[in-house]
Design a protein around this nucleic acid. Structure first.
Length: 698
RNA sequence: GGGCCCGUAGCUCAAAUGGAAAGAGCAUCGGAUUUCUAAUCCGAGGGUUGCAGGUUCGAUUCCUGCCGGGCCUACCA
């Protein structure tokens, strides 16, 4: 609602400016006034126009207010301060529309969003991508929760989305655990298979992985075992590769189970083994050489390798007499000249990249590194490779949704994966350079459009506070104790496992539920505790903006009060309680003709002081689709968490201030009940987009 | 050395393309007519937004330089 009105406002204003001043303003800034009394929208446009029109901002604002005319849904334009234009919408009309939206409650979100505005084509979101050699930890949880929430946001906006989880099953990390079982534990294949079938095999691997790292430290010659194992795994069709497959598949299943606890599902699991065995790289390599994206290095430390320019570096002229010629500083002065010079500079160097700026794609022994495989994989994602995976069903979720996995020769009938219009890779900020190198490779291959639709959804890591590390029993150096946070390390076995954190959250929530609802069965209490735990965890991971390092601490993560998921869940539960006590069905309430509030009544109850109060709640409730589009445009789900919290907070105040069932005036009671029904509905939708369900009672 | 990111209340974090008095939560202190259950609400204290310049009508936000911290900078993935 809010979003549609804003668009209408901007369109009218743009047209007015064109007509009146002959000005074309592409981006008209719209804000919200600091106080609800001032209106719903604020336009600082007059300040921006002041210089162009050589007039005082206030004068311009007055002209706009006088001339813009009537816009459906809006009531009033006012000049405020030195030149702000405050805009008031028709509260009654907006409330009527928002209340009526409840009648579409049963429809899918795609029906709600205006289909015309949905961009064409499928979106591919890759997230999780956990090495299948040990248990998932809190860092992986942040990734999966960000990724899964982004998927939900895209679907909310009507996009068709494929969710992929890339599995590096042939890398050193898996090799290390194989080494551990074979060389340290001296296990046979049969014994490993038996262990892999036991519960929480990933925990066993977690510890073993740390011990292997230790074992390498003790005697560097032990590293030979890793090299030999890695080679055997990459080759395939041998005992070592078979053992690696047993391990990686078993751990992968554990990861899927862990993520399922968080209501996170995947559609397809592309594996590195198939990138290798189906020769994706060979196809990519040919194209990369043809397009001269790769250069063969004849000398220096990278002699014998195929290299690419590292992303973020630029070709520098050999003579730097003119400092203004540097590519980044040249745009303002003489963009045209700088553009041609830029290519000249590249040619002057004849594609020669300084050793420092070289990224090795193919090693001198002919094997391809991670970035090379990733380039091939991303060419596949955009349908540019000319090859495809084999597919087979791998994992079935309780809702009968199938998750597919790559194989060399798969089933005949399978969904069509890849070949998408847009991709988002949820990968932490440490891999920015590698991601940008892949994007550059696509661009240099001539696929600029694909490169533009490739988004590295970058976020910062989850680390532990020194206190948390101490609680977990790690001995810290004085230096570490003074740090704000300490990085998690799988190699050292240092971190908080995802399942452990979930278990701790469920136990903690369970204690509260047991006290509050002793009358419920154990199964009911467990189910509520689980929903609260997931709500707390998902909210916790989403409330921080992406670029903020989360310094993890059990105290904060286990909190259920204030700015938390359970707080928002509780607001919904309270709203439900009103209807239960009142004997109404909250979902059906606004659909019921008898309970419908007329536009005139909305106008009556949404004025005055208490009207302002309640209107603030309605306005917040109208913003969901606006917030969702902001989250998508900025790849920042944290705005959604903020929105959920604000909505819950406003509702809690409303709930406390206005007793509903005891309201004597029947018309007003209906209005208050409608308010509760609308907010409840919107809050449930917002929480659902965050992957958070709401328990029946709390 | 080079690249990217961060520095806001005691603590943890917000502040969309620069905009009206920089906001929450936690913690501390003080309250809430025994009511739609308090996992809640109300109130108080707490800030020269790391420092110094610059651009702008306007800077937490953009630019430059410092100070402090993190990550990346492998023929690992």
């Amino acid at each position: 609602m809010y979003r549609h009105l804003e668009r209408r406002l901007v369109d009218h204003l743009r047209e007015f400016l064109r007509r009146t001043y002959d000005l074309e303003i592409a981006n008209i800034v719209v804000e919200q006034p600091p106080q609800i009394e001032f209106g719903e929208y604020a336009l600082p446009i007059a300040f921006e126009l002041a210089r162009k029109l050589r007039k005082a901002p206030r004068k311009i604002a007055e002209e706009i207010v006088a001339g813009v005319g009537a816009i459906p849904g809006f009531e009033k334009f006012e000049v405020a301060g030195g030149g702000y234009i405050n805009v008031r919408v028709s509260r009654a009309e907006l409330a009527t529309a928002l209340a009526a939206d409840l009648s579409f409650a049963g429809r899918s979100s795609a029906d709600r969003s205006s289909a015309a505005n949905v961009p064409p084509g499928k979106v591919l979101v890759e997230h999780s991508s956990i090495n299948p050699n040990k248990a998932a930890h809190i860092g992986h949880l942040r990734n999966a929760i960000l990724g899964d929430t982004f998927v939900r946001l895209l679907r909310f906006a009507g996009r068709e989305v494929d969710v992929q989880n890339y599995i590096d099953n042939t890398g050193v990390q898996v090799a290390d655990v194989v080494v551990g079982f074979l060389h340290i534990e001296k296990k046979s294949r049969a014994q490993i298979e038996a262990l892999a079938a036991a519960p929480r095999f990933d925990y066993l691997c977690w510890d073993l992985y740390a011990r292997v790292s230790q074992w390498y430290e003790e005697d560097k010659s032990n590293l030979q075992a890793r090299a030999a194992t890695l080679r055997a795994i990459e080759e395939g069709n041998n005992e070592t590769a078979a053992i690696a497959d047993v391990i990686s598949v078993a751990v992968l299943k554990r990861h899927l189970e862990t993520m399922e606890r968080l209501d996170t599902e995947y559609d397809f699991l592309p594996r590195e083994s198939e990138i290798l065995h189906l020769h994706f790289w060979d196809a990519a390599f040919t194209k990369l050489k043809e397009a001269s994206v790769l250069a063969y290095e004849n000398e220096g430390k990278n002699k014998g390798c195929w290299v690419m320019r590292r992303a973020g570096t630029s070709a520098k002229p050999l003579t730097t007499e003119d400092p203004s010629a540097s590519p980044s500083a040249s745009l303002g002065a003489s963009a045209k000249a700088a553009g041609s010079e830029g290519t000249d500079e590249g040619e002057i160097a004849e594609g020669k990249i300084t050793e420092e700026d070289q990224k090795v794609i193919v090693r001198s022994n002919g094997t391809v590194g991670y970035v090379g495989k990733d380039i091939a994989y991303h060419m596949w994602k955009f349908g540019l490779l000319g090859r495809d995976f084999g597919y087979r069903k791998f994992y079935r979720y309780p809702n009968a949704h199938d998750c597919w996995i790559s194989t060399t020769d798969g089933e005949k009938d399978h969904p069509h994966f890849g070949d998408v219009a847009e991709i988002y890779n949820v990968i932490d900020a440490r891999q920015s350079e590698a991601q940008n190198t892949v994007i550059e490779a696509l661009r240099e291959l001539g696929h600029g459009e694909a490169a533009d639709r490739y988004t590295h959804f970058s976020y910062e890591m989850v680390a532990l506070t020194p206190r948390c590390a101490a609680e977990l029993g790690y001995n810290l150096s004085e230096e570490d104790k003074a740090r704000p946070w300490i990085e998690v390390s799988g190699r050292k076995g240092f971190g908080v496992k995802a399942d452990d954190l979930l278990d701790a959250l469920i136990i903690s929530a369970g204690k509260e539920v047991d006290v509050r609802h002793p009358e419920l069965s154990e199964a009911e209490r467990a189910s509520i505790a689980t929903q609260i735990a997931i709500g707390a965890l998902r909210y916790f991971m989403l409330k921080f903006t992406k670029q903020s390092v989360i310094a993890f601490d059990f105290k904060d993560a286990l909190s259920f009060e204030g700015d938390t998921g359970p707080y928002a869940q509780y607001a919904v539960v309270r709203a439900s309680n009103i209807f239960r006590k009142g004997g109404f069905d909250p979902d059906a309430y606004c659909r019921d003709q008898a309970s419908r509030v007329s536009t005139a009544d909305f106008a009556k109850y949404l004025t005055g002081e208490s009207g302002n109060d309640i209107w603030e709640l309605w306005l917040a409730a109208s913003k969901t689709s606006y917030i969702v589009s902001q989250c998508i445009a900025t790849t920042e789900p944290a705005y959604l968490a903020k929105h959920a919290f604000q909505l819950a907070q406003l509702f809690s105040t409303f709930y406390h201030r206005y007793p509903i069932l005891s309201e004597a005036d029947e018309g007003r009671r209906k209005f208050l009940l409608t308010t509760a029904a609308v907010v409840r509905r919107e809050l449930i939708r917002v929480l659902a987009a965050m992957g958070i369900g709401v328990p029946p009672v709390m």
